[in-house]
Design a protein around this nucleic acid. Structure first.
Length: 825
DNA sequence: AGCACGCCGACT
DNA sequence: GTCGGCGTGCTC
């Protein structure tokens, strides 16, 4: 009996294998590898993906059930993507269904819905019918009805329904349905100001928060999302709901638009004539495309060297050979300007995929690709799964960006997936960056698996901006306690006079980074996470940036009641305030997660800045990436070493990359640029190398350190984080795991004297408390496996984890594995 | 992940 | 004597 092997959508270790289903005659010939099917599984209906066929079931024929339904006429995944999914699940140690789900748009994440209908021959008394308040009448019409909507419509009949189902008078059937939910947003609509004032007068005086809400709406009459309004006023949605209940405001679910680019016109662009340097750089890429071999290249080009034009011309070449192209861009750089560059060149052939799209929009773009109506996919990380069938080229712009690593399961890195997918397709990969990750750089310098292409000059020979380092310790000695050094102060003044613009970077949001009592040393920490709370000026709250916990600012010390409670450290809010005080009349746009939560706000700020409605763009790392404004002639970094002391071996690399990227924002057009970096550590290589735009110098030094400690690219890492409410439990589980990995390594004769890139093999560190030792009320311990690249450590870790899970069963221990972790926190 | 099956406390 | 608490095991 021919069977389909199905991966069912239950993300657990013991269901991480195929289950066999027979193919009903009417589906014969329709079910393919990659088909999405609904199947009965343990008494319920589930979604699954067909990954193989077999001539016979691996279990006795009586156990094999038929596929209930084929969910799409055209399989959403190809055999190639299924294969890629299998590779991902092995590489990052996750259940295959999780890898496969990551490839599907959210709209295709099927969910079982329960339907109820009367059993044949079931009767109800007149009294029961009357008591059911219309429910039995509705059921009596014959159509099975959705259980969830019945419960919503008749909230008090839940018990009754359950009883009838137990008695067999009602029957239940499950059906897997698409979650084609159009995205909606609860939005507040305010009446006109007069009505609002009248409403305020009618409100009881003690309803203070409700007054505030109405006052805010009187000033800001445009519709606003409930969540956002609540956040702006430091209250909760219940306040707003209360107002809606009184009928004073209206709250409606607003659906989001489906074609984000429907009303936009993209003026066509033609290929630019390449500079000699560009022409030389693109040649090997074109060669590789023409030969149809799998090849990968690092395109190492300084900021402003014209990498995007090379991408465009490479894509053009790829398309003209009848193949398709994927372009990955960091989420944050996926701005309308960026999209425009691709749409202008390739028009309707471009599909755009990013997280800001609603599920419906995303699904529509995805279908354009699947159905062959688009040949270029431009998108963030997950666009690497664009369902093309003839991929010729994959471009990853800003390849060093951390956002290419997904932090939830599957914890894949899009760069590695790209290379594997290109290998499967005989396609070319181009990794572009001004500051390549050390892994990529080292690989390209080895020259075996990856070629190196350099583009060391900016186009039109525009100079890289001059970089000045300012030692803030000297400033302090000279009595300057302000957050702006004298140099930066002067530079700001001169830009204001010349009506030029500035970008200021501070990689910390909020107002003050911690709150401490000067009398007793008490610091405010999150009660759930052991993380210092950050003070936010606007809402006068202290917030945890990890779990979102917030409390009102204390007037006196909660511990000793001293009034000497002070705010330390500087966040973007405080800089904004200080700019206004120091430079009266200065116009500042602040961009950080607090000001860009609303859909489209990110874009709006950038447009305003571009139109020169502000002098300063102040923000966290989101102002460092890919922005291109002709009037920006000054970039200021307020505290360059902020991220340097983090307990992460990549801290230096990140700092260097961030500083170089932000420095590249200055002087990109006619006007020359200047960069001022304030630091307490002006000798640090991450910082001094930025001054000379000296990537190679920085990398050489950093690689030496990595070599000594056996960190990537010389060794590889697997992080395992265990979390539980109890510390002793965690410690014993952690030790058990570490011991077991060690035993397995010894059994396989893998030496444990790995130190640096020349030792041999594998070592396991920990368990130790995680840098964030407690998160959301759970303690966290971690182990780190450090190993030489040719050792199959993930197999050992997987086995040790299986054994550990077997041993502790369900006692609440949560284990999370991260292969090639990018963040050590 | 769910849902069933199974073995021990507070109720009609 | 029964309802139901959630520990354990299976799902083609």
């Amino acid at each position: 009996m021919k069977v389909a092997r199905v991966i069912v959508d239950v993300p657990s270790r013991d269901t991480d294998r195929t289950f066999d289903y027979s193919i009903p005659p009417q589906l014969d010939g329709w079910v393919e590898i990659g088909s999405r099917v609904a199947v009965p599984f343990g008494g319920r209906a589930l979604q699954g993906i067909v990954t193989a066929f077999a001539a016979d079931a691996e279990v006795e024929a009586a156990k094999v059930k038929p596929i209930a339904e084929l969910m799409d006429a055209m399989p959403p995944l190809s055999a190639e993507l299924v294969q890629l999914g299998e590779w991902i699940s092995k590489r990052w140690l996750c259940p295959l269904t999780i890898a496969l789900q990551a490839m599907l748009p959210a709209a295709l994440k099927g969910k079982a819905e329960k339907y109820v209908f009367p059993a044949i021959g079931a009767h109800w008394t007149e009294e029961e019918t009357a008591r059911s308040g219309g429910l039995l009448l509705a059921l009596g019409r014959g159509e099975p009805l959705k259980l969830a909507s019945l419960l919503q419509q008749y909230p008090d009949q839940g018990e009754q329904l359950k009883l009838w189902m137990r008695q067999g008078r009602l029957e239940e059937r499950q059906r897997v349905e698409n979650r084609m939910s159009v995205k909606t947003m609860q939005t507040v609509f305010a009446p006109d100001a007069d009505k609002l004032r009248q409403a305020m007068a009618e409100l009881p005086a003690r309803a203070r928060k409700q007054h505030e809400v109405l006052a805010y709406l009187a000033d800001n009459p445009e519709p606003i999302a409930v969540e956002r309004l609540a956040e702006a006023l430091g209250t909760t949605s219940s306040t707003i709901r209360a107002l809606a209940d009184r009928g004073l405001i209206e709250v409606r679910a607003v659906t989001e638009d489906r074609d984000p680019y429907a009303n936009r016109h993209f003026p066509p662009s033609v290929p630019m004539t390449l500079t000699p340097a560009q022409a030389e750089a693109i040649a090997p890429i074109i060669d590789a495309l023409d030969s149809r071999d799998h090849r990968a290249f690092l395109l190492h080009g300084v900021t402003g060297s014209g990498k995007t034009e090379l991408y465009l011309q490479s894509i053009d070449r790829c398309l003209s050979s009848g193949r398709e192209a994927i372009v990955l861009v960091p989420e944050i750089s996926l701005t309308p300007q960026m999209v425009e560059r691709f749409k202008s060149r390739f028009g309707a052939k471009v599909a755009v995929l990013h997280s800001r799209l609603s599920n419906g929009e995303r699904y529509d773009e995805w279908r354009k690709i699947r159905e062959g109506r688009a040949q270029v996919a431009v998108g963030a990380r997950s666009a690497i799964f664009a369902p093309f069938e003839r991929i010729g080229l994959i471009v990853i712009d800003e390849e060093h960006e951390t956002s290419y690593k997904q932090e939830e399961s599957p914890k894949y890195h899009a760069r590695d997936v790209a290379i594997e997918r290109a290998r499967l397709n005989g396609a070319v990969v181009v990794l572009g960056s001004a500051t390549p990750s050390l892994e990529t750089y080292a690989a390209s310098k080895r020259g075996i698996e990856m070629g190196y292409i350099s583009l060391p000059q900016r186009v039109a020979d525009r100079p890289l901006p001059g970089v000045r380092l300012v030692d803030m310790r000297e400033e302090l000695k000279l009595g300057n306690r302000a957050m702006f050094s004298r140099a930066l102060h002067e530079a700001i003044v001169s830009r204001l006079e010349k009506k030029e613009q500035m970008v200021l970077l501070l990689n910390r949001r909020g107002y003050a980074t911690f709150v401490m009592c000067r009398s007793c040393g008490y610091t405010a920490t999150c009660p759930h996470c052991e993380i210092a709370l950050t003070y936010h000026r606007g809402a006068q709250t202290m917030r945890c940036h990890y779990c979102g916990y917030a409390e009102v600012e204390p007037k006196t010390c909660p511990s000793c009641e001293s009034p000497h409670i002070r705010y330390f450290g500087t966040g973007t809010q405080k800089v904004e305030e200080s700019l206004a005080e120091t430079f009266p009349g200065i116009r500042v746009i602040r961009m950080d997660v607090d000001t860009t939560t609303e859909k489209g706000s990110h874009e709006r700020w950038l447009t305003e800045f571009k139109e020169r409605k502000a002098d300063v763009l102040l923000g966290t790392q989101m102002v460092a990436k890919g922005l291109d404004f002709p009037y920006v002639t000054l970039v200021g970094v307020l505290a360059a070493d902020a991220a340097l002391r983090l307990p992460d071996f990549r801290a230096s690399e990140r700092t260097f990359q961030l500083l170089t990227q932000v420095a590249g924002r200055a002087g990109r057009h006619e006007l020359p640029g200047e960069v001022i970096i304030q630091t307490y550590d002006p000798e640090h290589p991450s910082i001094t190398s930025v001054q000379g735009h000296h990537y190679e110098g920085f990398v050489r030094q950093e690689l030496k350190l990595r070599h000594v400690f056996g960190y990537p690219p010389y060794g590889r890492l697997i992080g395992v984080t265990l979390s539980h409410e109890s510390v002793p439990m965690l410690l014993s589980a952690g030790q058990r795991l570490a011991t077991r990995v060690r035993e397995l390594a010894t059994a396989e004769r893998i030496g444990s004297d790995f130190a640096g890139g020349n030792g041999d093999a594998l070592e396991i560190l920990g368990p130790v408390a995680s840098p964030i030792a407690r998160l959301k009320d759970r303690y966290r311990f971690q182990c780190m496996v450090k190993y030489r690249g040719d050792v199959d450590a993930s197999r050992l870790v997987a086995q040790a984890l299986r054994e550990l899970e077997e041993a502790v069963k369900k006692n609440g221990l949560i284990v999370s594995v991260d292969v090639d972790p990018q963040m050590m926190l």
